[in-house]
């Protein structure tokens, strides 16, 4: 058994609950910031049919979204539940999400930009919490992945801002463009702070790794 497998034995049920929650939150965040904001930045006349098709396909009853194709052969390893989710003790949500009643975004202005609250944990504390559920190597890898994602997100913000400012300059922007630009600046700054924090966490982890190898 590998060291990683041994570490995984330490995982507790709460990790899975948190895993579900954090992934649902990430989806919310992505939809708002990286789809809605970018489209609104372009203007209300933007043709969004391609984006809508993706959402519609994802939520279509019976499931027509190519999850299995994306995952390849590994999809079959976990596609069959070991126990019935129809059991009386288990909330029955085991069917495809039908009729999701997707909502319409009524006020797509600057106020809709989500800026998550800052994580105030000390880097050392955050590093310890990571190490409670994974090996040191995995934690460094995970933080590197996080930094990479955050950098990409930061660049997306920057791109939105660039486009919006180009539209403002060309006098093609919506009336609330200045507010949206200000909010994007704020979100960009928050992302930069987050990147720096995760770099600090990774540094703590790398110092531990260096100490372990000296």
């Amino acid at each position: 058994m590998t060291r990683k497998r041994e570490k995984r034995r330490l995982l507790l049920p709460g990790h899975f609950t948190e895993g579900v929650k954090s992934r649902a939150e990430a989806a919310t965040y992505f939809i708002d910031l990286f789809v809605v904001r970018r489209l609104n930045t372009l203007g209300k006349g933007t043709d969004v049919s391609a984006v809508q098709e993706i959402f519609d396909a994802l939520l279509a009853k019976g499931g027509t979204f190519p999850v299995a194709a994306w995952l390849g052969p590994v999809a079959t390893t976990s596609s069959t539940p070991a126990a019935s989710t129809d059991a009386p003790d288990s909330p029955n949500t085991a069917q495809a999400p039908s009729d999701p009643s997707p909502h319409t975004q009524e006020e797509p202005g600057a106020a809709a930009i989500l800026i998550p609250p800052a994580d105030t944990r000390e880097p050392a504390q955050a590093a310890e919490e990571l190490l409670s559920s994974m090996s040191l190597a995995d934690a460094i890898h995970a933080e590197t992945a996080r930094i990479y994602d955050l950098c990409k997100q930061r660049d997306d913000f920057q791109e939105q801002l660039d486009v919006l400012q180009a539209r403002i300059h060309a006098k093609k922007a919506e009336a609330d463009a200045a507010d949206t630009a200000a909010k994007l600046q704020e979100a960009l700054k928050a992302k930069e702070t987050d990147i720096q924090r995760h770099r600090s966490i990774r540094m703590v982890l790398q110092e531990k790794e260096a100490a372990g190898h000296s």
Partner: peptide, 14 residues
């Protein structure tokens, strides 16, 4: 269609 008319799923639905 405009962005304001997008029929958006929630994060949990996704």
């Amino acid at each position: 269609a405009s962005p304001a008319e997008l029929r958006l799923p929630t994060g949990q639905q996704v």
